[in-house]
Each structure stands twice: as structure tokens, then as C-alpha cells.
Nucleic acid binder design. Structure first.
Length: 502
RNA sequence: GAGGGUAUAGCUCAGCCGGUAGAGCAGCGGCCUUUUAAGCCGUUGGCCGAAGGUUCGAAUCCUUCUACCCUCACCA
């Protein structure tokens, strides 16, 4: 980079020359503060009341149109944009000279009176325009035009790689991107408020864990020097949160990052945000109500209604959502009832469905595969899939009516799952057996099988009340609400290969 | 991990069956005291992602590499 710095592009050299000129004329290009009285949007919205009143706004110059001894510009702040009108005979010779040395992208503060131009645009007639930060890099400026009431952007900053790597530029230049992240923040705020209003306690549990658990995934491994031990970045919060239920809390939740050392695509980032909640004395039926209530609550808070548009389809989040068992759903979509079928029969059915089956797959795995291939893509409207085979769910309690099943559900919509929940297994003896079954899988070479956690078993032996638990993939919920097709578009800084290798 | 695509000026993109680089915007110099994708005149700017190869000659054809995007496989 330093080589490039020496040989700056012409456009950047010019900016540095302007910086020097400004300093020579006594202008501080990096002053310490500015007293703002209004945001741009407030002025535009309240133009009548503010007419001929003095205001002070601060933000970035996004367009400059010169007219000799006069100039128009747009300044953008966090709320929007407003036009400036700078006259040499108003701001004075020296200040006008400073203005002439400003570039698109520079951060400025303007004081002046509000008025309306001939064309009817609310504008600030500058009494003074101050440089607040000189910028040395040109912004990839997007030009906009209003055509038939539609905002049309020209030369949009669109290169995805650059947008992700230089999100700060993306945010300045693409207003829709900012909106997505504001909505993301609101979703989490409303989620938190909803859970708090239920009387649940927000808690924090370890990210660095000596034994990882609570999900099936490969972990990131790290090393703690002082203790000289291997630690894992958590793949889930589950086992720690349930320890807190053992400890006597009636309901706890955590919204935080989990880490899974696996592939990346438009639904997966190595670090992602999970919300997990556990409520004592409740079961999975209660958790279903909690999910549909929470998601529709968020929709109402954000859009004032419980339907949303996602990738051109209207999704109706109004409770109650459809509920169907895993086996019924498979039968509905394939015509095959897989319940109680043995391994050979399942293989035969998979064959008839033209699916490839790996030799080491067991019953549960085949059922899961049939479901995700034949059913999952068709679950567009919100649907709870319930009652999974025991072997797929080592932490879930057996079904009250059928010991081959567990009380588990996953909420699906737009062809993907957004969470996972169960009546939590609190029988320590059964839990030990399930862990041992996982150990066998581990030995068979399943590197995602779960580790046996003796301390967690000890906690269960002290007694965990009946508990309902739920995890929600927050990023996916955000994708749904903000109509984004890729997880990278709802993460400020999605994981990328480091820049400039080789 | 497999397949497909993309990479040319600060940004958005042209550049055909190989002949030595182009536009708009931005920038720079002019003119311009109500413009708004401001306008008009002039003008600078490129190791054509990297490295090799074929060729008299490569942005263009071939090979390898790098990064990103899309699809598929595993996982939320």
C-alpha cells in the first residue's frame, strides 16, 4: 500500500494540494466540533415554520453545482439531504474561496437562513460554510434523477466485493443499504423488548468454551495461553442457558454471536447472530406461540402490519401459523409415509424419489434428507414442522405420546428454516444415553456429532424443571424482514478473504 | 469441495473474427448570481486483476494463479 501511497492517482494528489492551500489560508481542515441545530430532514419537513429562520446543519457534500460567484450543493446527514445556496456576496470573499476548495465527500457545517428556490426546493442560504473534515479520497458518487416520481440512480456503486470490503463507502453512497441496517437494529430492539415484556432475563454466557455443544457443527478452535488449554468458540448458547434454568431463573435469553467453522454461502456466515430463549415450566407448544407472537409483534412494530413482502411474495405472519408433523409433511409432499420404516425401506423410498443416499446414512439422516429436499423448499408461508425422530435431536425431550419422537419444532418460511425449538430434555439418564449415541456417531466419523458434557449432566442431575427452549437465526429473520436474498447484505462486514494476498 | 460467470480510468461501462485504449460521470482550467443527472468551451487521467505462452503484433486467443459473484453439496 505504501508504494501506492507514493504514487497517488492524480485525483488524490489534487485533494492533497487543496488541503495544503486550505491550511495556508488559515483554515483548519480538521476542527474539533460543530454546533448543529437541525437535521436536514427536519428542515425539509418543517420548511414553513422554519422559513427565514437561521439553522445550522452538518454533513457530507454530495453534489456541487457552481455558477460563478454562486453555488448550489447538497449536504447529506444521517436523516437525509438538503440543498445549500452559497453566494459570494453573502459568505464573503475568504469563505467563498474556502468553499471553492471543497470537494464532493467533504464534511462541512453550514449556518444560514431557510428559503425556497424558484423550483420550490427547501434550501439553506449559507451565511457561512465551514470545513469540518477534508476528505482525501473521492467518493464513488451516485447521481440521481427523479423520473415519473421514481428515483433513478446513475452510475451506482454496485461492485459487491467493494461494497462488502468498504462498507463505509457503500453506506455513504447507497441509502437503501443504510435502511436495511437500521431495520436490522430495530428488529433486535423489538425482539429484546418483547422478551423483556415477558419477564425474561437477558443474560451473557461464555463465548470461549472448553466443551462445545448445543448444536451439530464444527467449531473454531483457539488456545488460552495462561491456562494452556484448547478452547472452542461457541457454536450455540444452549447448554449454558439451561444451566441457568437449573440455577433457578424462570426464563433467560441471550442475543449473541455464534461461530461455526463451515462453508459460506448466501445463508451462512462463519459468525452469525443467534437468539436463544429458555422458559421454565413450559413446553414446545408454548414456544410455538412465543415464536409466532414475537415475529408478528416485530412486523407490527416495524411495518404496522403482519404481512411482509419478500422476494416478490407476500408472506402472512399473522398467528396462528400452520402446524404439521414432520412425517405428515413428508407424506403430504411425497406421498410416502416414512414413519416406522426401517433402514432398508427408507433407502428404497429415497431411491423411488430419485435421491442419492450415502452408504453411512442412518434412518434419521435419510428422513432429514427427504424432508429438506422435497418439503422444505415448498414451505413458503410460515409453518411449524413438529415431532422429529429421536436420533436427530439429542437435547430434546421424548414426545409425550410416542417415545420414538421428540417434542421439537422448526419454524419455516420462504423455503428455509429460521429457528429450532424443543421441550428440553431434563432426564439426566436419558440425556447421558443420547450423548453416548452421539459418541458412537463421532467414532463413526461424523465430525459434527455432539460432545459429551459431564458438567452439563451434573447440572441436570441437580434437576432442571420442565423447560421450553428456542433458538432463532436473527440474520435470517432480518433477511426476511428487509427483503434481502443474501446474508452478506444484512451483515455490515461479512466474512471475506483477506485483501491483497500474493 | 464441484460447475458456471466477472475482473478495462476514481465510479458506471464500451472495446466485434488479434493491429497498440474509448464514452458518460467525477477531476482540472475557463464562462456563468435560483441550479439540481445544471449547462457551454477546453483538458488531464490507464502495467486493460497477476504471471507465463502463441504471434511480426495480445485488453482481445491459450495456460496457470488471485479475488469476487451465482448454482450445487454440508451446516442456522
Amino acid at each position: 500500500m505504501s508504494e501506492q501511497e507514493k504514487d497517488l492517482s492524480e485525483i488524490m494528489q489534487v485533494r492533497r494540494q487543496k488541503l495544503e492551500k486550505l491550511q495556508e489560508s488559515g483554515v483548519n481542515p480538521y476542527p474539533h466540533s460543530f454546533e448543529r441545530t437541525h437535521f436536514s430532514q427536519e428542515i425539509v419537513d418543517n420548511a414553513k415554520q422554519l422559513m427565514e429562520k437561521e439553522v445550522a446543519v452538518a454533513g457530507r457534500l454530495m453534489s456541487i453545482r457552481g455558477h460563478g460567484k454562486v453555488g448550489f450543493a447538497h449536504i447529506m446527514d444521517s436523516q437525509g439531504r438538503i440543498q445549500l445556496y452559497v453566494r459570494k456576496d453573502q459568505v464573503g470573499e475568504a469563505n467563498f474561496a474556502t468553499y471553492k476548495l471543497m470537494d464532493i465527500g467533504d464534511i462541512v457545517g453550514v449556518t444560514g437562513e431557510v428559503f425556497e428556490t424558484r423550483t420550490g426546493e427547501t434550501t439553506i442560504k449559507a451565511a457561512k460554510i465551514e470545513l469540518l473534515t477534508k476528505t482525501l479520497r473521492p467518493l464513488p458518487i451516485v447521481k440521481e434523477k427523479i423520473e415519473d416520481g421514481e428515483r433513478v440512480a446513475y452510475d451506482q456503486f454496485a461492485d459487491k466485493e467493494m461494497r462488502y470490503r468498504q462498507r463505509y463507502v457503500d453506506l455513504v453512497v447507497n441509502p437503501d443499504v443504510r435502511e436495511v441496517f437500521i431495520t436490522r437494529s430495530k428488529i433486535i430492539t423489538h425482539m429484546r423488548r418483547f422478551l423483556d415484556d415477558k419477564g425474561l432475563l437477558e443474560v451473557e454466557t461464555p463465548v470461549l468454551q472448553p466443551i462445545y455443544g448445543g448444536a451439530s457443527a464444527r467449531p473454531f478452535v483457539t488456545h488460552h495461553n495462561a491456562l494452556d488449554v484448547e478452547l472452542y468458540l461457541r457454536i450455540a448458547d444452549e447448554l449454558y442457558l439451561k444451566r441457568l434454568i437449573v440455577g433457578g431463573f424462570d426464563g433467560v435469553y441471550e442475543i449473541s454471536k455464534d461461530f461455526r467453522n463451515e462453508g459460506m454461502d448466501r445463508f451462512h456466515n462463519p459468525e452469525f447472530t443467534m437468539m436463544e430463549v429458555y422458559v421454565a415450566y413450559k413446553d414446545y407448544k408454548y414456544m410455538m406461540e412465543l415464536v409466532e407472537e414475537m415475529v408478528s409483534y416485530i412486523a407490527n412494530k416495524i411495518y404496522g402490519k403482519t404481512t411482509i413482502l419478500h422476494q416478490g411474495r407476500e408472506i402472512d405472519l399473522t398467528p396462528p401459523w400452520k402446524r404439521i408433523t414432520l412425517f405428515d409433511a413428508i407424506e403430504e409432499h411425497t406421498g410416502h409415509n416414512l414413519y416406522g420404516k426401517d433402514l432398508e425401506q427408507l433407502r428404497q423410498i429415497a431411491k423411488e424419489l430419485k435421491m442419492e443416499v450415502e452408504s453411512f446414512w442412518r434412518e434419521g439422516k435419510i428422513i432429514d434428507e427427504v424432508f429438506s429436499e422435497k418439503v422444505e423448499p415448498k414451505l413458503i408461508q410460515p409453518t411449524f414442522i413438529t415431532d422429529y425422530p429421536v436420533e436427530l435431536s439429542p437435547l430434546a425431550k421424548r414426545h409425550r405420546n410416542d417415545p420414538n419422537l421428540v417434542e421439537r419444532f422448526e419454524p419455516f418460511m420462504v423455503g428455509g428454516e429460521i429457528g429450532n425449538a424443543f421441550s428440553e430434555l431434563n432426564d439426566p439418564i436419558d440425556q447421558r444415553e443420547r450423548f453416548l449415541a452421539q459418541q458412537e456417531l463421532l467414532e463413526l466419523g461424523d465430525d459434527e456429532a455432539q460432545m459429551l458434557d459431564e458438567d452439563y449432566l451434573r447440572a441436570l442431575e441437580y434437576g432442571m424443571p420442565p423447560t421450553g427452549g428456542l433458538g432463532i437465526g436473527v440474520d435470517r429473520l432480518v433477511m426476511l424482514f428487509t427483503d434481502q436474498a443474501s446474508i452478506r447484505d444484512v451483515l455490515f462486514f461479512p466474512q471475506m478473504r483477506p485483501e491483497k494476498s500474493g
